[in-house]
């Protein structure tokens, strides 16, 4: 009896030889415990060492191994072959990102957008270490905790059609993290973040498709964060019209 196998179609792009990306089919042993990343690693170790892909932790924490699996953005370390077997598995680099090589994308634009929203606690005054812990109640933590789970895996950017249609859009993860710090009781940086979040390229490019939240492997809800930011920014806008506002 022959061992069960599974066909993996992988989008290849070797900038030095390929004009356009092409699919290459690999046949790998099927193992019900394997995730797609295991299959990719098997290919690199045993079949074709030129295949390039990113990964690091193999446990859905580092956010490096996001790819399109049968058209859906997923972490390859978190997607089991058994959910597709005996069907084929088609692996492509994340949509809406330029391809550097094979499954590796160029993430520079995302990194710039992420940094632009200042995703860290900004305090009114510098707090010396001697000031001790910056306390926060569990209830206050709960108001934003889900957003802290973001691992910057960029699946939401691949799922968002507005990212493809309007490349300047700041995008789901960055806006969700801006919201996360705005909600943090220790933070005083909202006004600085609003410069980006409430700009034309900020929340207003979102049309609430909601795909970002559906594909998030960590159950973060960027779509909710963006709508809440729209409402809060609208309140700011009307408040500024009042004689005593601003």
């Amino acid at each position: 009896m022959s061992e069960p196998v599974l066909e993996l179609e992988v989008l290849r792009y070797r900038p030095e030889t390929d004009q356009d990306p092409v699919f290459q089919t690999y046949t790998v042993p099927y193992n019900s415990d394997w995730v797609v990343l295991d299959a990719l690693t098997h290919i690199k170790d045993n079949i074709d060492r030129t295949l390039s892909f990113r990964w690091s932790c193999h446990m859905a924490v580092c956010g490096s191994c996001g790819v399109m699996i049968n058209g859906e953005p997923k972490l390859s370390c978190h997607t089991f072959l058994r959910d597709y077997y005996p069907g084929k598995v088609r692996v492509e680099p994340l949509t809406n990102f330029p391809i550097e090589r094979d499954l590796v994308t160029v993430a520079d634009d995302f990194m710039e957008k992420l940094a632009s929203v200042k995703p860290y606690v900004i305090t009114e005054e510098d707090r010396p270490v001697s000031a001790g812990e910056h306390l926060q109640s569990p209830a206050d933590l709960n108001s934003f905790k889900q957003y802290t789970m973001c691992i910057n895996c960029m699946l939401c950017y691949a799922a968002c059609p507005q990212m493809g249609l309007t490349p300047d859009f700041v995008g789901p993860a960055a806006l969700a993290l801006a919201h996360r710090y705005n909600l943090d009781t220790r933070d005083a940086g909202r006004e600085e973040r609003q410069e980006i979040a409430a700009s034309n390229e900020g929340v207003w490019d979102c049309t609430f498709v909601g795909a970002c939240s559906q594909v998030c492997p960590k159950a973060v809800d960027p779509a909710a964060a963006i709508q809440q930011t729209k409402i809060a920014s609208t309140v700011d806008w009307y408040k500024a019209l009042l004689p005593w506002g601003k």
């Binding site: 410069e195 980006i196 409430a198 700009s199 034309n200 390229e201 900020g202 207003w204 729209k230 409402i231 920014s233 609208t234 700011d236 806008w237 009307y238």
Partner: peptide, 15 residues
């Protein structure tokens, strides 16, 4: 970055 006037458009859309 320029201050956006989208809030007025969007609030009427949402309303």
């Amino acid at each position: 970055m320029a201050k956006s006037n989208k809030p007025i458009v969007w609030s009427l859309f949402a309303g």
